[in-house]
Nucleic acid binder design. Structure first.
Lengths: 223, 223
DNA sequence: AAGTGGTCTAGACCACTAT
DNA sequence: TAGTGGTCTAGACCACTTT
């Protein structure tokens, strides 16, 4: 039943009504409803009463903070400014290839960027993306684009992230981090290694973030 | 509909069947099913086909790792050994009182403990618990008890944790941490501040953990 | 065999959105 | 007013567990 997802309709698109899907698959409306409810719980789809059901997209206010967990101490979450430091092509090292499920030596796009809150550099991200999917990704396009990178990935490269797995450690700022985040070497930072997945649980992004947590924290709800 | 939770039946207990609840509340079985499905999604209740629906408890294998996110690098999660360092009563400082939603100066139980994986001290926890709820909690009872602390809290004090909110930062090991975790002063540690809630979103535990992440990491699934 | 949750049906009525 | 999702009904059959 869920096999129809991811391919048939694009993010943001309206999918057929429950009644129509029920007819198409020869099941009752209740069964369609249950299937859609499950997809909605997984954030694959968004329901709007009176309007219809839409394929989830990263171009929505409610999606903005789904993958950004760093919030200011005692303040309201807001989106950081973005500065691209470097974009280049390289051959995937063994570890990167393993996590992205590609072959060692395959082309990958490497991106380094710094994100700032109210002008204060706070996040240093290194990203590795499979070159085969992200053809033609340049620093210019990344700089032009406003808002979360996942919006660009979705619109320009047809790759919608549906989930991610993170490993968090505490580390000391190295040379690079100290320079880009304007802190002393040795300052403790959150090291967040993320692998993001698109439809079919296919890994399509490896990201290693260094978060400065003197005025922000990583928020997590356990339930 | 969900108002019947938390009070009428104890953790681990079997609740009435869907059909009986449907009769009791004059609704259809489908409506009861939906309500129970929602409670099941919130981990308030566990469904077992052919047996019935049970109030969730921390005395289950599947609950063990719900609130323990630190896992060994490249290994299988397992439960750490527990060593109680200190248990004492004190008057709640303003900040603790605020987070626990009690009055400043009210009695709280303070616990300090170290958790080790395969003999390696890895987690230093400081806990603050409302004295009014955790009467008679002693180091002996904590040391006798095997398994997750939340199991003891549930059985001995009738307090079942249903969710928690964590704030994570990177810090340097201070004097106390370096001594108890057997690391040098200044080593980077994960600082995890947790507030746990019981039924009715009532805060009942404040916990500040320092995690050594040289051989473990905090795992988080974003979805 | 009896009782449980798991899935599904075919229909009803309501709340919301558009035209 | 018509179409959408949101909620509910009353019943069916299945898979699993216990006696």
């Amino acid at each position: 039943m869920q096999g129809l997802q991811s391919g048939e309709w694009k993010p943001g698109e309206l999918i057929p009504s429950e009644i129509e899907l029920a007819g198409r698959f020869k099941v009752s409306q209740g069964t369609v409803r249950k299937a859609i409810d499950e997809m909605s719980a997984e954030n694959l789809v968004v329901r709007r009463q009176g309007k219809g059901t839409f394929v989830a997209t990263h171009h929505e206010a409610r999606s903005q903070f789904r993958f950004l967990r760093l919030v200011p101490d005692g303040g309201v979450p807001h989106y950081p400014e973005n500065k691209i430091i470097e974009v280049k092509r390289l051959r995937a090292p063994a570890e990167v290839a393993r996590l992205l499920d590609i072959k060692s030596g395959d082309s990958v796009v490497f991106i380094r960027r710094v994100q700032s809150f109210s002008g204060v550099p706070t996040i240093l991200d290194d990203l590795w993306l499979p070159g085969a999917i992200f053809k033609g990704l340049t620093a210019e396009r990344l700089n032009e684009y406003k808002g979360p990178m996942y919006g660009l990935f979705e619109t320009e490269f047809g790759t919608h992230m549906i989930r991610a797995s993170e490993e968090i450690r505490a580390v000391c700022a190295d040379e690079v981090a100290s320079e880009l985040l304007h802190v002393e070497k040795g300052v403790p930072l959150l090291n967040v290694e993320r692998v993001s997945f698109t439809y079919g649980d296919k890994p399509v992004e490896l990201r290693r973030g260094l978060y400065l947590t003197s005025q922000h924290h990583y928020r997590n709800e356990l339930s």
